[in-house]
Design a protein around this nucleic acid. Structure first.
Length: 278
DNA sequence: CCCCAGTCCTGCGGGC
DNA sequence: TGCCCGCAGGACTGGG
């Protein structure tokens, strides 16, 4: 479930190995039957080998290696993808190995148990199209209350569902949406069109506070243990969760039992005590 | 445009 | 005890 904090942790893990020095892509290797690697590995080699990494960025829930010619190598972990510098948890789910020359770590691995993740080499034009403003909203760490309201206040969708819409705001997924709404004291089923100016401001502050704290803890590693940082270490924010996956447990703030509901085929957790409808 | 359901994919945990 | 079903949800697509 990598969301913004986990993906930002991956980016920061890759940065010291790659950033600030001239790193040249030397080799790509992937499994015999590549899953989620586009275009073909052969075409990626032809276009990217010998290029230099100009920047390591994050776009929503993706890590992007910008190359010196405007191309970009985009890592999209989705559910179980990891970007690692040393060793992968196992060889069977290793999807791609990028060999680097001049880097502190000489290789960058993409590992993905379920294979829903993607690695893409995109041209500058493809990047501009895929990440055009109408397809991906402002980054969750930078979004303002006014931007949230402008993009969502006309919608009658439930606020929890809207927070997952990457066109509205980029980086929030199912886990942090519940945590954010709890901190903002907003009911997850409240229609966007019902939120007041104060609530949009509270929501913006909660987004920033929760995501920054989660980054500080290097993300959430759930009980399945999948998520790891670039050095294969678990995150620590799972111990700070106040509502996510805590159905029937007492709310840490008011003691009311946390409730689980389903919205848009996804679990939502909230505290009926703290998060009244208005 | 808005919104929902289905798809991809694997590991696991609950239930019988 | 062992097996099987269904759930986990990020990004995208197609249909109403």
């Amino acid at each position: 479930m990598p969301e913004l904090p986990e993906v930002e942790t991956m980016r920061r893990g890759v940065l010291p190995a790659v950033g600030g020095r001239i790193v040249t892509i030397e080799k790509f290797r992937c499994r015999h039957r590549p899953i989620g690697i586009t275009p073909t590995i052969r075409s990626i080699r032809r276009r990217a080998v010998g290029r230099t990494v100009a920047a390591v960025e994050r776009i929503g829930k993706r890590v992007v290696l910008r190359l010196d010619d405007g191309q970009a190598l985009v890592f999209e972990p989705r559910m179980t993808g990891l970007i690692l510098l040393d060793d992968a948890p196992d060889r069977g789910h290793l999807r791609l190995r990028v060999t680097l020359a001049g880097a502190r770590a000489d290789r960058l691995l993409f590992w993905d148990r379920r294979g829903l993740g993607r690695v893409m080499l995109l041209t500058a034009g493809q990047m501009a199209e895929r990440f055009a403003p109408h397809r991906i909203g402002p980054d969750a760490l930078a979004v303002t209350a006014a931007q949230l309201a402008a993009r969502l206040a006309a919608s009658r969708r439930a606020i929890k569902v809207a927070l997952l819409d990457q066109r509205a705001v980029a980086g929030i997924g199912n886990l942090y949406a519940s945590e954010i709404l709890h901190r903002a004291r907003i009911h997850p089923a409240a229609p966007c069109s019902d939120l007041t100016g104060d609530q949009w401001r509270a929501l913006q502050r909660a987004i920033r506070t929760v995501l920054r704290a989660a980054i500080r803890y290097e993300g959430s590693t759930l009980s399945d243990g999948t998520y790891r940082n670039a050095l294969n270490a678990a995150g620590g924010y799972q111990n700070q969760h106040r509502v996510y996956d805590r159905a029937r447990l007492p709310c840490p703030d008011c003691g009311t039992r946390i409730q689980r509901i389903v919205q848009g085929q996804r679990s939502t957790f909230f505290c009926p005590g703290c998060q009244g409808r208005r």
